[in-house]
């Protein structure tokens, strides 16, 4: 049997969005009786087609979602990406990430934890009900979006794994596979991509273990099949396409901090009062806005100060940028 890769499927054969939308309405009805099996059913039947067509993720409302924001267009969220494993141009990830095999996918939880274990993506998706969380997203490059993420608080997974009291930090590692990510060699970065949080940051309910956006599974360029989203920190803290979660005693090495520690601190909380050495962080450019309306002020902690400022009580945030 010839198994066709996504690139070999002519676009004329890909089901138009309206059509599979209808199919989903049917599937949603089926899901009411068939339960969660239907949630990942489409993936199992057509794993190869999956890359082109995201699967619906039924969500529940969340009080942790940011109210009163208009989400950035789906097209912008999925074609303007920093995912250097797929190239450094903003358009590269959406062009190059199509071949990333996101199913099957496993996430290994290891380190200072009572129950080291490997979760399949199916197990992770089902661990908690999926919530819609609209968050502001602020890149360190001074642009911003509003993204309706889908996921649940990372704390749910952490509690499941029972970290030891000696675990003070959590490290996240992105897939490191040059065969699927051939553009990795274009940049002078020591792969795999590594990010980390202090345990209390990781346990904060806003920190989202993320599986989707706009009610569907994540497109590959946005970090499929599972990523972290930390809305009060610059975007690079939110590691994508995670394969390993490691509980550690000491602050883990993180990619951009190792590349240029004077520019990218371990904390990297959004802070209009601490400029990037090369550009101001006082304002940001709203993605998708008209050119004369793009500039807007940047908020401390990206607008989440009420919820997270207490995590940093007594800390000098100019030193711990």
């Amino acid at each position: 049997m010839l198994i066709r890769k996504p690139s070999m499927i002519p676009s004329s054969e890909i089901t138009p969005k309206e059509v599979y939308g209808n199919r989903r309405k049917f599937m949603a009805a089926a899901a009411a009786t068939a339960g969660l099996a239907a949630l990942t059913g489409e993936r199992l039947v057509h794993p190869a087609v999956e890359v082109a067509a995201a699967t619906k993720l039924p969500t529940v409302k969340s009080p942790l979602s940011t109210a009163g924001l208009t989400p950035t267009a789906y097209k912008d969220i999925t074609t303007y990406n920093n995912f250097y494993e797929f190239g450094t141009d903003k358009g590269d990830p959406s062009r190059n990430a199509g071949h990333l095999q996101t199913y099957p996918w496993n996430v290994k939880v290891e380190g200072l934890v009572a129950k080291p274990q490997t979760f399949s993506i199916d197990e992770l998706v089902k661990l908690r009900p999926q919530e819609e969380r609209v968050y502001r997203f602020r890149c360190v490059e001074a642009w911003s979006m509003v993204i309706p993420w889908v996921g649940y608080s990372l704390s749910a997974l952490i509690q499941q794994c029972q970290p030891l009291s000696s675990a003070r930090y959590v490290q996240f590692l992105t897939l490191d596979d040059p065969r699927q990510m051939p553009e990795m060699s274009q940049v002078n970065i020591n792969w795999p991509y590594s990010e980390g949080l202090r345990m209390d940051e990781a346990m904060h309910p806003l920190t989202l273990l993320t599986f989707g956006l706009y009610g569907e599974t994540l497109p590959n360029q946005d970090g499929a099949p599972v990523r972290i989203v930390v809305p009060w920190k610059y975007g690079f803290k939110s590691a994508k396409s995670i394969v390993k979660i490691r509980f550690v005693a000491k602050q883990p090495p993180t990619t951009w901090n190792e590349m240029a520690s004077n520019e990218y601190g371990f904390y990297s909380n959004v802070n209009p009062d601490v400029d990037h050495p090369r550009w101001s962080q006082k304002t940001e450019r709203a993605i998708g806005a008209p050119i004369w309306k793009q500039r807007q002020p940047t908020l401390p902690f990206n607008g989440y100060g009420d919820q997270v400022a207490s995590l940093y009580a007594g800390m000098d945030l100019k030193k711990n940028y």
Binding site: K75, D76, K90, W143, P290, I291, Q294, R295
Partner: peptide, 21 residues
């Protein structure tokens, strides 16, 4: 493209018009 982004097609200059220009 600037003219179109101001009139008929707001996305004519791409997601980040400032950066594009």
């Amino acid at each position: 493209r600037m003219y179109r982004s101001a009139t008929s097609d707001p996305s004519a200059l791409g997601p980040d018009p400032t950066e594009t220009v």
